[in-house]
């Protein structure tokens, strides 16, 4: 049986009428996709939110990016439960100074 490699990641940019941007992420936020998403976020100058409704898989670096993004004021919309829990835990640990 042939197993494919890393899950694909697709990032769609939606510009709202209030000039805010929603980045709709599909697939996995893992491996090199983390860097891609970080770069896309860095390039945004307007208010930006991440729609994670179609995210299936997130690795540790991906969660770290999401946690940092949320700490920087980026809204995480439709965040899958396990990702939500992981991000929250990481933020709590970061606030308590615990090595994560």
């Amino acid at each position: 049986m042939v197993r494919p490699g890393n899950m694909s990641c697709k990032i769609e940019r939606v510009l709202n009428s209030n000039n805010s941007v929603v980045l709709r992420v599909s697939g996995g936020i893992e491996g090199e996709h983390v860097g891609t998403l970080r770069e896309v976020l860095r390039q945004e100058e307007q208010e930006v939110a991440l729609d994670l409704a179609e995210v299936n898989l997130v690795d540790r670096q991906g969660v770290k990016l999401l946690a940092v993004s949320e700490a920087n004021g980026i809204e995480l919309r439709n965040c899958p439960g396990y990702v939500r829990e992981w991000v929250s835990r990481m933020n709590r640990n970061a606030n308590s100074g615990k090595e994560h």
């Binding site: 694909s8 990641c9 697709k10 769609e12 599909s26 697939g27 891609t36 896309v40 179609e54």
Partner: peptide, 17 residues
């Protein structure tokens, strides 16, 4: 949104990511 790209593949730069 990824079903087509997973089934049929995609070219580099086809979309962000």
């Amino acid at each position: 949104s990824l079903i087509s790209s997973e089934l049929f593949g995609y070219e580099k730069g086809a979309f962000t990511g």
